[in-house]
């Protein structure tokens, strides 16, 4: 019975994830077609880096929120999410392109090193996986939520690091909780 329940929950979760993914994919594809000309201008890898900083920055968000309009805020959130999804897809495509160019150059070289190729492939998979996770996270909570989450995680880790440093200092000074 428990197994069936777990199976049901698992199925629901997977369906939900698929639905989210599909919805995002369709939205991004529509936008991708619309913004094809814009993308052409963003081919430079450094350009896309600056764009990332801007898309995920809270500065614009604060400005819009300061206007106090619910409609405007909602519209901004929707638009920003779509742009962020488009950016992730574009970055993912660029990563694919990098590895394609690499394989096309490396396939004819006599000095190919198996382990180097394997490491590059590992890095490529890692980046593609990051893109996938980023896509799902933006789809679920939006680009700013993602940044907020990262900041929260950093604060937490900083807190742990501080606590650890205090503990280490206390241990070094010969202090023990038992007195």
């Amino acid at each position: 019975m428990i197994t069936l329940g777990a199976l049901g929950i698992g199925f629901l979760l997977v369906s939900l994830l698929l639905l989210i993914g599909l919805k995002g994919l369709l939205t991004a594809r529509e936008l991708e077609q619309e913004c094809a000309s814009v993308q052409d201008g963003l081919e430079g890898e450094l350009g896309i880096m600056e764009l990332a900083e801007r898309i995920f920055s809270p500065a614009d968000w604060k400005l819009i929120q300061g206007q106090g309009s619910v409609e405007l805020t909602e519209l901004f959130r929707r638009e920003r999410r779509a742009v962020a999804l488009l950016w992730v897809r574009h970055t993912s495509r660029q990563i694919r392109q990098i590895i394609r160019e690499h394989t096309e150059a490396a396939r004819s070289s006599r000095n190919v090193d198996f382990w180097t190729e394997l490491r590059l492939f590992g890095r490529y998979l890692e980046l593609r996986l990051t893109c996938g996770m980023l896509y799902a996270a933006i789809q679920a909570g939006g680009p700013l939520w993602l940044r907020g989450l990262a900041m929260h995680a950093q604060e937490l880790s900083r807190g742990i690091a501080d606590a650890q440093a205090t503990f280490r200092a206390a241990t070094r000074a010969g202090y023990s909780p038992q007195g």
Binding site: E45, L46, I48, M49, A52, E53, I55, F56, A84, W87, V88, T91, Q94, I95, I98, I99, E101, H102, A106, D113, T116, L120, R123, Y124, L127, T130, C131, L134, P143, L146, R147, L149, A150
Partner: peptide, 19 residues
């Protein structure tokens, strides 16, 4: 390899900037 590494590193930096 060096070119590919540098370009992948750029992409990673870009993704890191996002979060």
């Amino acid at each position: 390899v060096a070119t590919t590494r540098r370009r992948l590193q750029n992409a990673r930096g870009s993704l890191r900037k996002a979060v």
